[in-house]
Design a protein around this nucleic acid. Structure first.
Lengths: 349, 349
DNA sequence: TTTTAGCACTCAATACGCGAGAGTGCTAAC
DNA sequence: GTTAGCACTCTCGCGTATTGAGTGCTAAAA
């Protein structure tokens, strides 16, 4: 994502000023206002010339022929990649994030939800947290729990500290003895196996085993084969309401479009991962149509991966209008990802 | 909720016509249009007179001095209570609901989510499902599952077919023997006990027990006392986006207000239960400010309780603009509540 | 006495014109 | 290369005129 045009020092300065202006006021930036606001040591007329150049090279844009300038996607891109300095969070802010996250500590799912809530709260944007990729998780413990004569639950603790419950229909009641032997068996062969390989593992083992253990293995196979192990990634979203605050979503059509987008969970996950692929392993910023589908330029996303035991297992971030305070939000997202990773690692311990 | 004014046959006819007109077109109903649309056998002038009377007694309202009439809260109320005939669902519709619900059959939580989704889909409104009151649930089975040296999970299957997972921090590792003895102990004393009495039960038992079993009981007590058993009711919401379709929410301020309301889960639950208290045990319709807080008249809610093993354990329904097709939605909500109850009962075994 | 036709009136919605203001591009001077 | 000056453009807000749906009232008809 490098620019094919070299910008002069002055052009960079003006571009940055326009972005800052627009981010804070939501109004197109005019030459006079820029000079005044940022104390530039050249005149409005000069700024106008520079802005005209920046428009020619696609960094700025006019909404109509006599309005101030607004950054284009490319303008934001350049700003984020080269001009912006990620803000330092204050101690108080760091403390707050840490505190809010360690509160709901006992349950991993609760923690993830809490994180999305926190992101929304602190950034005043929509907070997004993708749950750890379940398929890649590793089996820690398996538990079987009878519910009725015809149903039982299979519980799975994974290496991310999450616990999944799945139910299994039984053709015939299972004795408590059988149950505990099957439990033992499942734990023996599955501990340390990746969740996505569970079925395969059980199947191969079952095929190899002879006589006496045979029944046990088939029992296990039967339980496992209907499990919904490949369900799609989970997403925790919070603070979509915040979008209403932004003037760009006062138009009902726009608002609706974003809300519709937010309902398409898979697409959002897809989007987050796209960001990760582009710039591993650090924070990525998706601007306008880079984030959403083509032709929908209103939103941006800042996302960062979080790591459990040193391995990136999921993404989190914020979604908001393209006109976003990137320096601050980037810092918040990074710090939150870091904290979440730490806490999850501790939980999975 | 009876009316203190007796309406003549003709007045009822006109009121009903106005409600139908407004529900379908979202435009205030004028006298001429009513006559034409409903083939009334008296003239527009007569309708005008009747409408003026209905306005005097508070059933209708004009938006401005020369506009058509629109029902008031009271108008809707009378319509719903006395005039409306609940629609019969077609066989196809029933089949669809049943089919959609039995699809996600294995997991109770999944089922509840699915139900809210279905409601949104079929009614084009926002679907709401309140999870069964957890506190009143009865313990079926308890399972303990080691996660690490310092954490374990306590799993609880209740009489509604739901499974809750809670984690417990351990001060020191617990042996597998101890774990299974404690599990046995917990099951012995808690099976059949209401969830809200768990802590109390364990405490009293622990106090009574002497010597040798003592340690076990204290172990159990320690596990149970930090459990988040009293967490607030859970709510499954789906299709809030549908609200954007309604012209009354094209105004951004209104839309925002509803979305804000939808975030306040406890208040929605409160609202649903209010409905149940008013008219047990059947479908209740909350109109305008009956549903939301005072002064916010834009929405209505249709809600019905669903029963597990014959006992009403939760509510479900739809939320939408006050201008709602009540006859059809009432039917859908009732049928869905019935189906959900059946399936849950089956699940709970 | 009830119903209806006719008519004047009201009000929202829409379009139109106008002036103010913000901001530009261009030219000429510095 | 930079800046001041100026004509020009376009949006926004406001007041006015027009239109049209719908009413209330009155007087005639049933």
């Amino acid at each position: 994502m490098t620019s094919d045009v070299n910008l002069s020092e002055r052009e960079q300065l003006v571009l940055q000023a326009v972005v800052h202006m627009y981010i804070t006021t939501a109004e197109p930036a005019g030459s006079r206002a820029l000079v005044k606001r940022f104390g530039l040591d050249f005149s409005p007329a000069t700024v106008r010339n520079v802005m005209a150049d920046l428009e020619d090279s696609g960094f700025l844009q006019q909404l109509h022929s006599s309005s101030g300038r607004v950054p284009t996607n490319r303008g934001y891109r350049h700003y984020v990649d080269y001009l912006m300095r990620v803000q330092q969070l204050t101690l108080a802010e760091r403390a707050r994030i840490e505190q809010e996250l360690t509160r709901g500590l006992n349950d991993a799912d609760e923690l993830l939800r809490q994180t999305s809530h926190l992101l929304a709260l602190v950034t005043h944007q929509t907070g997004i947290v993708e749950a750890p990729q379940e398929r890649e998780a590793i089996v820690q413990t398996i538990e079987l729990m009878p519910i009725s004569n015809h149903r039982m639950a299979l519980l799975l603790a994974d290496s991310y500290g999450r616990i999944r419950t799945m139910t299994v229909n039984l053709e015939q009641p299972i004795s408590s003895d059988d149950l505990s032997r099957t439990r033992q068996y499942l734990n023996d062969i599955l501990r340390g196996v990746q969740v996505e390989h569970i079925k395969h593992t059980v199947e191969t083992k079952a095929r190899m085993i002879q006589d006496e253990q045979r029944r046990l293995a088939e029992q296990a196979l039967h339980m496992v084969e209907t499990l919904p192990l490949t369900r799609p990634g989970q997403l925790f979203l919070d603070g979509a309401n915040q979008l209403f605050e932004q003037p760009e979503f006062h138009d009902i059509e726009r608002a609706r479009e974003v809300f519709l987008l937010l309902e398409e969970r898979e697409q959002i996950i897809e989007m987050l991962r796209k960001g990760m692929r582009n710039a591993p392993p650090w924070t990525s910023v998706l601007i306008g149509s880079e984030a959403a589908r083509q032709g929908f330029d209103e939103i941006s996303v800042i996302a960062a991966p979080y790591c459990v035991k040193g391995k990136a297992v999921g993404m989190l971030g914020v979604l908001g209008p393209r006109r976003m305070p990137y320096p601050r939000l980037t810092a918040v997202v990074e710090y939150t990802a870091d904290m979440l990773g730490r806490i999850l690692t501790r939980l999975a311990g």
